[in-house]
Amino acid sequence: MKPGRALRATTWSPYAAGALLGVTATVSMAGFGKRLSGAGAYQHGSGYVGRVLAPHSVYWKYVMPTGLTWEIWLALGTLLGALASALLSGQFRLRSMPDSQWQSVFGPSVYKRWAIVFLGTALIELAAGIAGGCTASLAVSGGAALAPGAFVFMACMFAGGIPSARFIYRKSRPDTEAP
């Protein structure tokens, strides 16, 4: 495939995209000593409010430095990278709900979607704090560095996710789902 056409493609093979993500993780860790990260940005930004609400907390004083860190710029870059890809492939569109499948279980309410997104993201960020990383910083980057904790995290992520999805979709089969 020509480079131009590849950049404008709507999807890539997960193997090709994944292998290039492996290269990206290698460059980030070997070249800059930094893991890929998703959850880190919010931890490093949390002090702006946390230090006001809890001025004496050891967490924001000593554990989690507050400021415009590597992780925050990385998250901004992630957003811009996806924006670039979506613009090139013509998929950028402002929308407030998932494009498919969500409504077959949760219904058409936007409020419900946004409430579940808020609770879901809060839980995920809390969980990433407890685990010491997220899919990017612990599973991919930690796994690439061969840290045992990364493999424990990944196994438990599926151990938590599989029964949850089974419960949520207990009444539907994949081939009968409306968008």
Partner: peptide, 23 residues
């Protein structure tokens, strides 16, 4: 690592993302 992973998986399967994919 295990407890965080379990909770992470529950949230991910419910809402359909992780922190990086939210961005």
């Amino acid at each position: 690592n295990a407890l965080g992973g379990l909770l992470f998986g529950v949230g991910m399967a419910t809402a359909g993302f992780c922190p990086g994919t939210v961005a």
